[in-house]
Amino acid sequence: MKPFPIFVGIAAVALVVAHYLIFVTVPMEVRMGPVQRIFYFHVPSAMMCYLGFILCFLGSLGYLFKRKTKMDLFALAGAEVGLLFGLVVLVSGPIWARIEWGTWWKWEPRLTSMLLLVLIFMAYWVLRTYGGRGEGVRRFAAVLAIFGTPNILFVRNAVKKWRGDHPDDVVTTLDPDMKMTFYVCMLIMLLLFSLLMITRYRMHRDARTAQAIRRRLGRLGGL
């Protein structure tokens, strides 16, 4: 059997396990109640979002200097998967905030920088999807990713003067059972991330190959 379907199977089982851990076995947080369980999705998703964008940043840098199509496709896959996890963060966060803060959204350092990061990569995605497929657009997108990722450091710096309400450094203070669940969820998210990353990358690569074949056939007068 090929390794990839096995990988998919493991990831599917792992996701079920993650849900069981989060909704059944992990102890209830005393103060926040059931809404705290969002944390086990929310934080690992944020980490995977950062990971995706960092991979996109690295792929873009590589593409700009080495001009290898592979690197460009890798960057695109990283941005897409990172964006997906970013949306999970931006949806799960407000649900928690509604209960805990009594409001969906606050103009708070962490929230502002995360929103901006997702907006930049949404621009990246729209550019890649509707801007055409030419070399110029790919380079444009690469520059956007390279300039966009460090932008976050600036936003963090810009808003650091504002009082932050977002919980920080929670994991170290957790109950051992909660900590265990958190780390397992982190691993499972990483598994899901790798799976999506590989799938998207392969898809883009195959699409590129198909395009090249079609172009060659066209030149031969075949199609």
Binding site: T112, L116, L119, I120, A123, Y124, V126, L127, Y130, G131, G132, G134, E135, G136, V137, R139, F140, V143, L144, F147, G148, N151, F154, V155, A158, V159
Partner: peptide, 30 residues
């Protein structure tokens, strides 16, 4: 630099502000 790069894209006039606005948000915040 974004404007130079946008020359090659389709819908350049729409894409350019869409790409530039989030990028310059830190400037506007400050």
């Amino acid at each position: 630099p974004m404007a130079v790069l946008a020359v090659n894209a389709r819908f350049a006039e729409v894409l350019l502000p869409m790409v530039v606005f989030p990028m310059v948000t830190p400037v506007i915040i400050a």
